[in-house]
Amino acid sequence: MAQATNRVDVPVSVDQSKCIDGCTLCVDVCPLDSLAIDPETNKAYMHVDECWYCGPCAARCPVDAVTVNIPYLLR
């Protein structure tokens, strides 16, 4: 099957300048397991556009690096 890469606006953003190297708190608590650690930067990011905009990721972040936006289609 032909593959395409479509850009999507993902709801959760992580401020890379604040995110703590090696911390996985947001990744650990996401019900949909949609956050991951980038192996190159060691920082968290949203790896799939699967989000209930529920908020544990932001609530757990010790340095307020995580922002939960409403998914674009609902916004």
Binding site: P31, L32, C51, L73, L74
Partner: peptide, 13 residues
Amino acid sequence: ASGYLYGTYENPT
């Protein structure tokens, strides 16, 4: 109605 797969009333898990 939004078409967003995970924008459900219930927790989508």
